[in-house]
């Protein structure tokens, strides 16, 4: 199978993730969409790595996984602490600061 198809899949996943961040309202779902974008990047990196015949892209894919794990730790800590206060994870409720 032509590896370029994986690039189209990666672009599609990235777009779904980005659209999800823009339209969804629950902080956890937003966060999952960001993770989807990171995974789309990983798929693109691995595919390009194969196309170019060097391993750099796969190495960055590993780094991305570690970074994503660290991001989960920080992000869930923040979202859970705000959920405990407001009993809601909807980002529409976070509107104390307005222009």
């Amino acid at each position: 199978m032509n590896p370029v198809n994986y690039l189209y899949l990666a672009a599609l996943l990235f777009t779904i993730g980005a659209a999800g961040v823009l339209v969804r309202r629950n902080a956890i779902v937003l966060f999952m969409c960001v993770e989807l974008m990171l995974n789309a990047s990983n798929l693109a990196l691995v595919t390009f790595s194969r196309l170019h015949g060097n391993l750099d892209g796969q190495i960055l894919a590993f780094f991305t996984m570690v970074v994503a794990a660290a991001e989960v730790v920080v992000g869930l800590a923040i979202i859970v602490s705000i959920f405990r206060t407001r009993h809601s994870a909807s980002v529409d409720d976070s509107n104390l600061m307005k222009l």
């Binding site: 690039l7 990666a10 990235f14 974008m37 789309a40 990047s41 693109a44 990196l45 595919t47 390009f48 790595s49 196309l51 170019h52 750099d56 892209g57 960055l60």
Partner: peptide, 8 residues
């Protein structure tokens, strides 16, 4: 994702 494309 931009880095991935530049790498590509």
């Amino acid at each position: 994702f931009g880095s991935a494309l530049l790498y590509g």
